[in-house]
Amino acid sequence: MNDSMSIPHLIMSASTVVQLVMLILVLGSILSWVVIFQRTFVMRRARAAHQTFEERFWSGVDLNELYRETPSEQETQGAEHVFRAGFREFNRLMAKTKSADAILDGVQRSMRVAWSREEERLTLHLVFLATVASASPYIGLFGTVWGIMGSFQALSMAQQATLATVAPWIAEALIATAMGLFAAIPAVIFYNRLSSESDRLLGKYEDFAEEFHSILHRNLQGRSEAGTA
């Protein structure tokens, strides 16, 4: 009795469709956990990097020096990426035009491009988590319904329907729902947590872009006043 009702035995004796559903759910669960761990590490690292960069930025260092610190071929992330894109565009445009509005427009555009790249990088694979969270209960339910259908078909052959003849079938079918919930619950929780984290980081990047923009604007104002004076 104990042996036949153990979970591995039930899984092994399930029908092919139910086993397929269970396999899909196990794969979904594993992949969703891979995404959860990977995103958690990425977020933590991005948060730390942002903090370091902001400290450095507001420490009164010369912007040209800050820009030159990292070689241009190296890929940068977060607020640093936004800063480098904006500053590079600023330097290039400064050599070509005197119009402050044109310079600021170009800087803002390039910073927006950098920001959207950062957004894409941070929310990568979060959609997969959302998919697992919403779809796996239904997949598990499908497996359960299929298993119970099979159990009733088998029951119609039996002469007397007792609890003992129905119980293994139903337990086996319910395992699919349990697996679906097992995959879905962490996916929902971590999707909410990670997406709010990425939203907060992106908000910080946006704030930083605005501040940087205002600094450049101030510089240009001062220079144009000096030029006209």
Binding site: F41, R45, Q74, Q77
Partner: peptide
């Protein structure tokens, strides 16, 4: 921080 996070450890 610049080094991208791999997938080996999460897997």
């Amino acid at each position: 921080y610049d080094k991208p996070v791999g997938y080996g450890v999460p897997t």
